[in-house]
Nucleic acid binder design. Structure first.
Lengths: 226, 226
DNA sequence: AAATTGTTCTTCGTATACACTTCGGCTGGA
DNA sequence: TCCAGCCGAAGTGTATACGAAGAACAATTT
């Protein structure tokens, strides 16, 4: 939100709490801490080699972000995304990323488009090489890039958080459908390049519809158990 | 997200950090801590009569919510919403509350509608009595209620956060336009009651357009300061 | 005047202590 | 056997103290 300031003055210090938070997030997303897993402060402190304070602060933020649930006097457990909330997440993402696509189309510079095209190209290569992990990464990079191009920090940060959660759910339960979605990405970038906001928005919508449908196909059962 | 659990087992303990966070939020929204104000941990700890630990945890969450900016090694300051981000906030709210209105229309029970109507009625009374503060409260209550009725927890919590920020900006810079917006609310609730999602969505959109226009009229100058 | 140094304030992280809850197991009685 | 209730262990919630390091600012020196 005020990254300019943070960059200028601030520091490259990266407080421990932030490192812990980042590590915690990725550990949860990767399934190292599976849903329902109890996260005691001492245990996390030991896992990350820090004292309880940074852990506690990271936990509060992780709670605000929806990665953990904190029961007063009972501690934190990894949240359990239910299939219900998956649909909810997609419903919100649909609106948000559609808006992002429109704004991106209206604001994208030539350099922005070039960057998107580069990601597209890398994605094509990775797809050919069956490197699913890399495909997924590029997938994420593309979406986040579009969000950034939209130029709306709120939109960007909110949609990013949602995107992370969706990723989390995917890793847990199902295979990645990434290859299949790549042609939709091309359409989306084409629309953004054209500068036609309406068209870009439609492209984003149909992309998300397809993604959400795929998610549901793969998601039958699997999440409810914590 | 798992409020059922929290209610059942949990506690009515309300940890200090949560109380501090709530107090901090409202203090910032009310302008008691104006934008740019420096918030040292000791000072907050003293203000709220607690030790530094709960304050620190509350600060981290407040940062995640965008109410404060934390400069590493330099401490926290109250964030400064710029007029640029106001437009951004409205752009996102528009999409989100439109979706909420649609979902609410599709899911609202008779009891839900009754609750909305009650708020509407109270709002009318408060408007007649020129009780602007109460009008604003009811305004908020109405919007939050609609979000709740939507039944989408993500949507609800995200839009709620945005709503709080908008309120904050309003309190700081400008008078409330609440009375003027009340007729739009009636339209919105009518649409929700009708069960017509499309119509409800349109009502929400035009309401937010009007609100955003009003915001911009009042917002000329005032926020840019540091 | 510019650069350097020193002082002070504050954050950041650690460590410790302790009250209070919750939980699981144990014991004893029906 | 089954259940009630007690007890102790574990873990959170909060307070406090302390040391290290950074930032801001004033004082001093060049």
């Amino acid at each position: 939100m005020a990254e300019d300031l943070r960059d200028k003055l601030g520091a490259q210090h990266l407080p421990l709490r932030d490192q812990v938070l980042a590590a915690l997030r990725t550990a949860i997303i990767n399934g190292d801490y599976p849903p329902g897993e109890r996260l005691t402060e001492d245990r996390l402190a030991e896992d990350f080699g820090v004292s309880r304070n940074p852990v506690r602060e990271a936990l509060r933020v992780a709670e605000a972000e929806g990665f953990v649930v904190i029961l007063p006097r009972r501690g934190a457990v990894v949240a359990s995304p239910s299939s219900g909330t998956i649909a909810d997440m997609f419903a919100v993402r649909e609106r948000l990323e559609a808006l992002a696509a429109r704004l991106a189309a209206e604001r994208a510079t030539a350099a922005d488009v070039a960057a998107l095209r580069a990601l597209l190209e890398q994605g094509r290569e990775a797809t050919e090489q069956q490197d699913l992990r890399r495909v997924a990464e590029l997938n994420t990079a593309l979406h986040l890039r579009i969000l950034r191009i939209s130029g709306n920090p709120w939109l960007s940060s909110i949609a990013k958080a949602l995107y992370l959660h969706v990723q989390w759910v995917f890793r847990l339960g199902a295979a990645e459908r990434a290859p299949h979605s790549w042609s939709e990405h091309i359409q989306l970038v084409d629309a953004i390049e054209s500068g036609d906001g309406e068209r870009a928005e439609q492209a984003a919508l149909s992309h998300l519809d397809a993604a959400s449908a795929a998610a549901y196909e793969n998601a039958e059962g699997g999440y409810g158990a914590h």
